[in-house]
Every structure is written in structure tokens, then in C-alpha cells.
Design a protein around this nucleic acid. Structure first.
Lengths: 266, 266
DNA sequence: ATGTGTGAATCATTTCACAGCC
DNA sequence: GGCTGTGAAATGATTCACACAT
């Protein structure tokens, strides 16, 4: 209270909550869609609906960025797009390398969402010599021997690992040694990295297992919940992904001798 | 803790925190690895390290399941594997359908992690007639006209959407109408579903954007650092939990706060 | 009027620290 | 002695509700 005069809202965005950061891309996507339809302004209510969150949360999130918006009116779409992009660091270009060009790596390389934002696929790298030179998504695959040189020549700081689980840690080590400080890991392994390196993990099977848990609950576990069929559990609308740093998962286990699960043959 | 006394560990555990549920697959994976190496018991400390979390959290998590474990000794690996599997609903078989067999859908179909745990790919569905009959991961792709029949014939309750964004909502609607109550969505769209249907989202570009946010922060001080040079990134913000888990990272200095364009709302 | 911005309240999760059992 | 199990404290995130700017 007693805000006194406020010339500068809180330009000093010290420590934006992790949960908020995780939602910014969601807002950005919704805003981009509005922008394409030339919508000039939105209210927190409308934008929240488009992003799948509730308006109070959205307003609180924006307040951490410094509160751009006009009381009684709403938010200027273009301006917000810019502010959020800047906050996320998308006004600059981020060259990324994708290591492990199997189906998943190829899917990532082809994924339009990368290029459309500040990301640029600087190189595709695979350990299989047979892949070398073969173009995927218009980019020739390079052999992993070149990894260090590629990272260094392109000033890459973000790496995506889409290799089989067994190759993930060695690849990670090389990426980090070459200068990469942020890694998006699709392999079902817990990567260990030195201080200062950020790792985010996307694990397909972990998500399915979480769904199975809820699914099981719906089917009624002969206890308290009615064994019927639709005991309204959990609200769907929300983005879900949330801030959960979720971890690795995978479980694979094929042979008794440590054959690893394969995300992709690489 | 609402638990109070505990006579019946298992069935009694209603309301496991969502954050805990999200970590169970992680523990399960670590335990499975131990099981393969025939390790009979583990301490919370060891298991936590393998899963990339801290031991207090792990013990608290297990306490929600009913606390299997022996003081002064640790946890019986096999027993825990079973209990967690059961809690997650993995002791039963979950037929899943994957809709949208592009690179991503193919990667998912080939993903070993599915089959190895209670999940079974019951069918691959694609809207492209040219794909029909073509085998992917040994399973023939079926045309989407068959969607409803497939869901119903196989008793599928979990669906995976790997279609382009534009097709996601219509596919979702059909899945739900046909009886699917849990959806794993890879398309970059907010799906709207009726009450009682669970949706989890995996979004590749959102993860990258979150990384970019943190990456930007690291480059705080004197401008861009050339990766080729000296990465010497710094100050450990907090020793914290051993093996760096994904997620929060030390903040460090406030980054740039540019105010480039002069676009202003109102 | 209208809808943002934000303290304060509520709810969830993590961490601490130690009692209790092996 | 060692290690689990768990109240209690601390921290973090969400929701409420309303003052206030436009």
C-alpha cells in the first residue's frame, strides 16, 4: 500500500518466480495468435482463457514483469509480445545444436516452433557415419567428431540431446566441455552437470505414468471414491506442464545385461 | 499430516500430492536400475542421489505411500518397485493410441520406454491415407476414420496426440467422444476438454524458451561471452542438493534491461 | 464503469530436525 | 550407530478481493 508515486512500475524485475517463467511462453503463444489476428488489446480475462490459466494468476505473473497494461482497458498486444519476448531472451538469436538424429531428433529439427521464435538450428549431429551429409529438415547432418568445433564456431550455448539413454551423459559432457550451458534432455537419464549448467528434461514415459496414475484413480480403487466412471477429478483446462522440473524417467530395461531403452536409434 | 495412525498403509493413501506423483516415475526408474543389479536394499540417501532429488523429500514422498522401509536399514528394492508400480497403476496394462504419425509420432511409437512398463501401443492413427497400412515400429498405421472403432474395440483410455497444432483439438474431441479420458498432448495448443478428462502437455518449444530465459541471465555481466573462450561461469549460488536437478538455478546478476522500442500502450 | 495491480489470505511443497525403531 | 518417519517451520505459489487509475 501507499505506493506513493509510481513513475517506474517495477522495472527491476528481480527474481521472477520459476512458475511464472514457465507460463510466459504460454502467454506469448496466445498473444502471438492475437497479434496475427490484429487484435490490438486484450483483457486479462480473455488472455487467460486463451492461455488456459486463470486471470488472477496471469495478472500476478505480469506484475512480476513490471505490469505493462492499462487499468480499465487491458493490455496492448504488440507491446506485451515484445516485453515477454525480451524477458525470455527471445529478442536475440539462439543457435542450438541437436544431437542424435533419429526420429525424435528429426522431429525436433522439423519442428516449426523452433525457428519461429528466437531459436535457430545451427547444426544436427549424429554419431552414425552413415548419417553424415544426409540432409534432415534441409540441414546436413554432421558427424559427432565435429561436435566441439561446431559448438565453438557457432557460439552455441544451448544443446538438445535426443540420443539413446546410454549416449546421453557422454554427449552431455562433451557439450558442456565445449561451452554449452543449457541442455534440453530427451533421453531417459538423470544427467549430471557442473554448477552453472542448466538442464531441463522432457520425458515421454514419465508423463504417461502420471496419466496412468490419474486414470487408475478414475476407474475407482475400491475404497473411498465411488467406483463409478466419472468422479470428476482434477481440472483439465490448465496448462499442466507447470513449473515442475520433473525429472528424468524412462525405465527401460530390456535385457538383463544393461541394454538401454532407446529413444531413438541414432 | 492427516494420516494420523497408520494401520493399513496401502489403500489408505488417498490424496498423494501431485508433486509427489510426478516424482514416483523417477524413483521407479532408479529402483529398476538397482533391481537389475540385484541390489537388495537402498537407503533414502542413495536412492535420492540416483533419482536426483534430496533424501528428505524422498522420505516424505514415500511416507504418503504408506512408508515401506525399515529404520536403520533402508528400503527393500523389489518391494518398493512393486509398491510404486502399483501406486502408479503400472501393474495393469494400458493400451494407448498415438494419433499423428509424423516424425514425432514415429519416435513415440519406437520409444522403448512405453512397452517396457505397463503401456502398450494399441494402434497408430494418421489422417493421411497414404500412411494407411504402412508399418511403423512394426505396427501398421490405420486411417483416422477408424479412430472410434479402434478406441472402443481396444478399450483405450489413454491417447497421445502428435498431430500438427491445427488438428489437435478436433482429434482430441473425437478421442474424448470415443471414451478416452487421459490425453498426452504434444501439439502446441491448449486443448479444451470436458470435466473428468485429464490432459498433460509436452511442449518442446516451451522448454527451450525456459532455457533461453535462464541462459540470458547467465550472460549477465559484461556482455556476450564467447563459448570458445573461457566458460568460467561462476558463483555457485547454493550448493544445495548435490547432483543438480533440473529446474531452478542460481540467479546471479540481474540481466540487461533494455528498453529499445518506443512502442507504448496508450 | 471497467479491469489492472497488488497486499493479504490460503493452499501446496520443501526443508528441518529429531523422536523412534532396528 | 544408523536410518526411517514425520510433526513443525520455512518457503513458494495461487487465489481473493478491492483500491485505484483510466
Amino acid at each position: 500500500m501507499a505506493t506513493g508515486r509510481n513513475h517506474r512500475p517495477a522495472t527491476r524485475s528481480r527474481g521472477i518466480p520459476e512458475a511464472t517463467v514457465a507460463r510466459l511462453p504460454l502467454y506469448l503463444r496466445a498473444l502471438t495468435a492475437l497479434s496475427e489476428r490484429s487484435v490490438p488489446t486484450v483483457s486479462s480475462e480473455e488472455l487467460a482463457a486463451a492461455a488456459g490459466v486463470n486471470s488472477a494468476k496471469l495478472r500476478k505473473d505480469f506484475s512480476y514483469l513490471g505490469s505493462y497494461g492499462t487499468r480499465g482497458v487491458g493490455y496492448d498486444v504488440e507491446y506485451l509480445v515484445y516485453q515477454i519476448s525480451r524477458e525470455l531472451g527471445l529478442t536475440q538469436d539462439w543457435p542450438v545444436v541437436i544431437v542424435g538424429i533419429g526420429n525424435l531428433g528429426a522431429a525436433l529439427a522439423n519442428y516449426g516452433g523452433f525457428a519461429s521464435r528466437g531459436f535457430r538450428v545451427a547444426a544436427l549431429i549424429d554419431a552414425d557415419p552413415a548419417m553424415a551429409g544426409k540432409p534432415v529438415a534441409g540441414i546436413p547432418v554432421q558427424h559427432s567428431d565435429e561436435l566441439e568445433k561446431i559448438i565453438s564456431d557457432n557460439g552455441v550455448s544451448i544443446g538438445v540431446i535426443a540420443t539413446p539413454a546410454g549416449a546421453a551423459q557422454p554427449v552431455c559432457d562433451r557439450l558442456v566441455a565445449a561451452g554449452v550451458t543449457s541442455i534440453l534432455n530427451f533421453a531417459p537419464t538423470v544427467l549430471s552437470v557442473p554448477e552453472g549448467v542448466d538442464v531441463r528434461k522432457v520425458d515421454l514415459s514419465i508423463e504417461l505414468q502420471i496419466l496412468a496414475f490419474h486414470e487408475q484413480r478414475k476407474a475407482g480403487d475400491g475404497g473411498e471414491v465411488s467406483p463409478g466412471a466419472a468422479p470428476a477429478v482434477s481440472v483439465p483446462a490448465d496448462g499442466g506442464a507447470g513449473a515442475a522440473p520433473a525429472g528424468a524417467e524412462g525405465v527401460g530395461r530390456k535385457g538383463p545385461d544393461g541394454d538401454m531403452p532407446a529413444v531413438m536409434p541414432a
